[in-house]
């Protein structure tokens, strides 16, 4: 099913969804940057730029309470968080690199244990993707098998039209349902031509080749060479649409408090630190290796997917300029040489 929607109607659609009591998370201008945030009105929608952080926090919050506890003479009482309380959400304006991420993450959150915090949010969210018509020199979605017009992960997909407005394609039944329910905002597709998709600079990488090199090179001087520069912050992981590691902390007092789940990053020295003081990944190269291995080998081994959508955020914001696309190219070239 394919229709069109005007810029104005897209904003009105947001208002209509909000009026129904749902939550609309979409790119919004936050002073110096764009962020995915809940909108208060359709006027706040700003689709001009790729948001600084990915949209993963819609499903996987930066920090969330998973239980409360209270201790008195009678014992310990535990208060559960009921995922049923999570709001119905429309994630609007997710770029293909962000929209595709949850479909990759579903596997890990429903593998040996069903993480209801993630899964319930996922069930309650409809994703309206947006094709990219501009890319910068850090974008590399095409290198990892995605594209600026890729509809994977989206329920509805918007493509900007030459004369303004968007072509809107229903990708899933969920998307179709939303489109039918809000039919008054959509019109039949006309002859308007879509804007040409962006052309990210990244040449397609041979991920299979890269993986085969990773399979045999857990120990390799390359890791030290790359990670000599890494300062061990979590900027890459926290901006990444696919990084999904978390830590769990108890906060409050012994008598009363909360257990919270919050983002963590394998670049941190503390990430693998044992209570004994022993740290199995005690130097940065081992931590950086884990980042690459997890994305391009371990996740593939386990779930058959690559844990990278090529959004380029880690490249743009690495404080020391580490470029994951350049590293992958380097690895690919090694395979050719060897």
């Amino acid at each position: 099913m394919s229709k069109t929607i005007t810029e104005q109607n897209l904003r009105l659609l947001v208002d209509a969804l909000l009026k129904e009591g749902g939550r609309v998370v979409a790119p919004k201008l936050a002073e110096t940057m764009t962020l995915y945030e809940p909108l208060a009105t359709g006027q706040e929608l700003d689709l001009t730029k790729l948001p600084r952080r990915s949209s993963k926090e819609t499903f996987f919050p930066l920090c969330e309470t998973i239980l409360t506890f209270e201790r008195d003479e009678a014992g310990v009482r535990v208060g559960d968080v009921d995922p049923a309380s999570f709001p119905e959400t429309v994630l609007l304006g997710a770029r293909p690199c962000d929209a595709a991420a949850p479909s990759i993450l579903d596997a890990v959150f429903s593998w040996d244990y069903n993480d209801e915090f993630y899964l319930e949010r996922r069930r309650k969210t409809t994703i309206i993707g947006l094709a990219c018509t501009t890319a910068d020199d850090a974008c590399f979605c095409t290198a990892v098998g995605l594209s600026p017009a890729d509809t994977r992960g989206s329920d509805l997909f918007l493509t900007p039209l030459e004369g303004g407005g968007y072509a809107c394609q229903a990708v899933t039944d969920k998307g179709k349902e939303l489109m039918e329910k809000q039919a008054q905002f959509f019109s039949d597709a006309g002859s308007e031509k879509p804007l040409a998709p962006a052309e990210p600079a990244g040449e397609p990488l041979d991920l299979g080749k890269i993986k085969s090199w990773l399979d045999g090179n857990f120990e390799n001087p390359l890791w030290t060479k790359i990670a000599d520069l890494c300062v061990g912050c979590g900027a890459c992981a926290f901006l990444c649409p696919a990084c999904h590691c978390f830590d769990i902390s108890d906060e409050g007092t012994e008598a009363k408090g909360c257990r919270r789940k919050h983002w963590d990053a394998c670049g941190f020295g503390k990430f693998t630190n044992h209570a004994s003081g022993h740290n199995p990944r005690d130097v940065q190269p081992q931590r950086y290796r884990n980042r690459i291995m997890h994305k391009f080998k371990y996740y593939d081994d386990k779930f058959g997917r690559t844990l990278c959508t090529g959004c380029g955020r880690c490249i743009r914001w690495c404080p020391v300029g580490i470029d994951i696309a350049a590293i992958l190219q380097q690895v690919e070239a090694k395979v050719e040489v060897e």
Partner: peptide, 12 residues
């Protein structure tokens, strides 16, 4: 409130 605690400020 926007801080994500990536600790880049500390690490650099």
């Amino acid at each position: 409130s926007r801080c994500v605690r990536c600790l880049a400020c500390r690490q650099v």
